[in-house]
Amino acid sequence: MSTNSHNIAHHRDDFGSKMGMWLFLFTELILFGGLFIMYMVYRVEYSEQFHLAAKELNLALGTINTLILLTSSLTMVLSIVAIGRGSKKISIFYLISTILLALGFMVIKAFEWGAKFSHGLYPGGTELANLSNGEVIFFGMYFVMTGLHALHVLIGIVILSFMLVFLLRDKINKDNYIKLEAGGLYWHLVDLIWIYLFPLFYLLH
């Protein structure tokens, strides 16, 4: 804050940039928060059917994806720590690792969804139509909430790829890496939402 007047002279306001990013993240929290409220309402109403439907989900793949996302959050942080210390190559390495882990998450997600689709468990699917109301709602919310989350992962991959280009071109450097920090904040939010999605959908035995 004390360097604000100085930064304005150079058309830079790191504090403002970060605040802007956080304000955007708050809208994301409210968006997902609304979905979680919907989840709570239906879970109270269809408690037993939710447990029954959750047995269809692949716990192993869900757990692996949780570990992948947590690790990608770590590599994201380490990338920021590295550039703060002026280690460009290490920062690039960790940022690429983060993007690869994100892609890994999407590949596993694709297999997971693929298995559900092949069993006819998709909105409008043959098998799903034969299930009870609660199970249909469970799968509906599973696809909407993990789908919206997966969309955020995809957007995250695009954002982090731009950050990688900025890093390679020295647009992000030791003295100016607020862009990387903002990208990192977005990525951690994706991780944060998954931390709640995982137990609510996969750990329901």
Partner: peptide, 9 residues
Amino acid sequence: MEEKPVHQE
């Protein structure tokens, strides 16, 4: 105050 704009580390 810094000489040049540095990241608010």
